[in-house]
Amino acid sequence: MALLEIRNLNVSFDTSSGPFHAVKGLDLTVHEREVLAIVGESGSGKSVSMLAAMGLLPKSAKVTADVLQFQGRDLLTMSDKERRSIVGREISMIFQEPIASLNPCFTVGYQIEEVLRAHLGLGRNERRKRAIELFSAVGIPDPEKRLSSYPHQMSGGQCQRVMIAIAIACKPRLLIADEPTTALDVTIQKQILDLLMTLQEDTGMGMIMITHDMGVVAETADRVIVKYKGRMMEQADVLTLFEAPSHPYTKALLSALPEHATGDRLSTVSDFLDPATLQEGPL
């Protein structure tokens, strides 16, 4: 059985100039031990589609889907309480801005122990012990001391490690990483990606990696979905996508990679393709 199955997901927001369709007809399936990358430029609806699956969009968002299931359980029709028992425990999510994603008024220890108490009902000593184990697992030095630190006392990379520790605290079956390295230094990006991949391999969880970085896709993903303006352009395994992309947008996206640049100007997608003439949706 698939971990997450989505068929014909649509997300729209009411605006003063009428409804804005952020996601149009998304289909995806993620299995255990699989890494699915969702790639696309800003505003392509990558994050919104996953926030919709997690139930984290504001009430102003209108979410519809033919199928939106986690391990066969319908995420659209279940009660809030039932969803909360899945979100944070069986499906976890980490975000782009690690420092802003942690509450500045609470110690990181409090923020990880909160999950352990809410989902696993662990006692005080057990929570602390488990939190130290988790901090060690994600490579935070001196974990016992770090539990009493506030987010502003830690670097971006360390905060992202804390976020990862919180995300894996309840041994989730699916981890959604929403551009987890975008806000980090290049050297830290590599460390965080290695950590995520090691954890994924060790635990066998499924992972959805949202990114606009084709390098990250090449390094981490088994399968890739390419999105543009809310629509899915192409879905393929990672080798096929890089070696024989079928959609003109994917080809343009790959051609616009910095390593293909010639002269003193970096290429953009519009150098290879007129977005106005782009056929929306998979070919």
């Binding site: 984290l56 944070g88 975000f95 994603s101 942690l102 500045p104 008024c105 809410a118």
Partner: peptide, 26 residues
């Protein structure tokens, strides 16, 4: 609208806890 409120919700915290603890203190 802060990111850490979204994180609290992503952790599966109840609406009461998200508003009454995470948002209220800030």
């Amino acid at each position: 609208s802060e990111d850490y409120v979204r994180t609290a919700r992503a952790k599966g915290m109840s609406a009461w806890r998200v508003v009454g603890v995470h948002a209220l203190r800030n």
